[in-house]
């Protein structure tokens, strides 16, 4: 019983409660880091780690946190985790950390993190909170990776740095990369399209 409930906490954010397409949180960073696939993947993983651990820690502390300063307590915990992720990336994945630059630091301001802490971790036990964090992180990741894939492929003609379009010989027959794809506005349009498809397939998400 408990197990299936926890499992649901992981799977729900993939679709019915996706943080980006349904809750419309964390849109800013998903426009900024998805011009290429690799930073999108690392960003997705970083956010997942931060949300999951922040949810766990806040849930463990939830009974001791005075409600009046709870937002500040959450911020301190989130900031600590983000700085840790940043330091670890700098030490072990130096090239990627340089590519992500300021965006790792900006995970602190990602609405998904604070949103899950307020909505879930403050009122639920540690294990479900951890699950909820992982689930939401992965829900965010799905959208980010999709965007990174589409934008890098059509914007730069590469995937993970590999020149796909060139190898296919498309440039020789007059194909050109779409410069708009690597601009943030196109990411917003793509998110809109994803939300559109998502809602068409899940009628119950549509508002009356």
């Amino acid at each position: 019983m408990m197990k299936s409930k926890n499992w649901k906490l992981i799977t729900l954010p993939f679709s019915k409660q996706n943080p980006i397409t349904v809750q419309v949180l964390g849109v800013c960073s998903c426009l900024a880091v998805t011009a290429q696939l690799k930073p999108a993947v690392v960003m997705a993983l970083s956010v997942t780690v931060v949300v999951a651990l922040a949810n766990l820690i806040i849930s463990l502390l939830r009974k001791t946190i005075p409600p009046r300063i709870r937002i500040i307590v959450q911020l301190v915990v989130v900031s600590m985790l983000v700085v840790l992720v940043d330091q670890v990336l700098k030490a072990y994945m130096y090239d990627v950390s340089k590519q992500l630059s300021v965006f790792v630091g900006l995970i602190i301001t990602n609405c998904i993190v604070m949103g899950r802490l307020e909505a879930f971790a403050m009122s639920n036990p540690p294990l479900p909170s951890l699950m909820d964090g992982i689930g939401n992180g992965l829900g965010y990741s799905v959208v980010l990776v999709t965007l990174g894939f589409v934008r890098e492929l059509f914007g730069s003609g590469t995937l993970w740095g590999y020149p796909v379009m060139e190898k296919l010989g498309l440039y020789n027959i007059g194909y050109e990369n779409n410069g708009l794809m690597i601009m943030p506005p196109m990411a917003l349009i793509l998110v809109g399209i994803i939300i559109w498809i998502h809602r068409t397939r899940n009628q119950d998400l549509q508002e009356q």
């Binding site: 880091v33 011009a35 290429q36 930073p39 340089k98 300021v102 934008r151 730069s156 690597i182």
Partner: peptide, 12 residues
């Protein structure tokens, strides 16, 4: 060349 924080895909 390298950079600290130019826009990925553009100045980057």
């Amino acid at each position: 060349f390298d950079h600290k924080g130019e826009t990925p895909g553009l100045g980057g």
